[in-house]
Write a protein that binds this DNA or RNA. Structure first.
Length: 218
DNA sequence: ACATTAAGTGATT
DNA sequence: AATCACTTAATGT
């Protein structure tokens, strides 16, 4: 039984990271990594929590957000399979406390790597170094995108982007969320979201239902 | 049937 | 675009 689980683990890691890392590194990941799974809505990294492991996503997706001192939430970016949380990276290098919150968007599996391995692997494996640097770059770009979405885009454009992002991420045109949840993600008010969604529905771009939105046009 | 939660809307700032 | 106040609709008990 544990045999088949390990087999499964190995396959999962190889499927998602096999093309990135050399075999020796993959073996190390299998050896030291701990597989965890979370169901939709579970928070697995929270503000003020010490980071002891860094996550590598295998399946599912994750929402990463920040909270300002007033308790106002702000969505930073989404993670999908093959991604790692760059924010926790910087946290564990400095042995600091997390300043972000990570929530499972859907049922998600990931490998937790102990921080001690980070240093070692950075020195030892070129592919790991590249992966980390690439992650930084990808994340930085995404952050820039959300930044100028907030700074320069109007609400209706932001909402469209939000919907498209989630459709792409979930691989489904049906999003299940309340208007309130969406509003919180974009830190605006529910009323605004409801009105904009209604407009989009009138234009035939989406179809609304209770707790769900179907994206028709994109 | 009643309470609760989600969504829609006009008016105001 | 945000907030208020209120209505209507869908769901759970």
């Amino acid at each position: 039984m544990s045999e088949s689980l390990e087999q499964n683990t190995k396959e999962l890691i190889e499927k998602n990271y096999g093309f990135l890392f050399e075999p020796e590194l993959l073996e190390e990941i299998e050896k030291h990594g701990e597989i965890k799974s979370f169901s939709t809505g579970e928070i697995f990294i929270d503000l003020g929590q010490k980071i002891t492991h860094m996550p590598l996503l295998l399946t599912g997706s994750v929402k990463v957000m920040r909270e300002d001192p007033k308790g106002q939430e702000l969505l930073l970016y989404f993670l999908e399979r093959g991604d790692t949380c760059t924010m926790s990276l910087s946290c564990c290098m400095g042995n600091k406390v997390s300043d972000i919150r990570a929530i499972a968007e859907e049922n998600t599996e990931l490998v937790m790597i102990p921080v001690e391995k980070m240093d070692e692997w950075l020195r030892q494996y070129r592919s790991w170094r590249n992966y980390i640097f690439d992650s930084y770059q990808v994340r930085l770009n995404e952050l820039m995108e959300t930044l100028d979405s907030i700074a320069f885009m109007k609400m209706d454009e932001r909402l469209k982007k939000y919907l498209n992002d989630r459709v792409k991420l979930l691989g489904s045109t049906t999003i299940s969320a309340t208007h309130q949840q969406i509003a919180t993600d974009m830190n605006t008010s529910r009323v605004v979201v409801s009105r904009l969604l209604k407009q989009l529905e009138k234009k035939g771009e989406i179809k609304l239902g209770r707790n769900k939105i179907e994206v028709l046009d994109f």
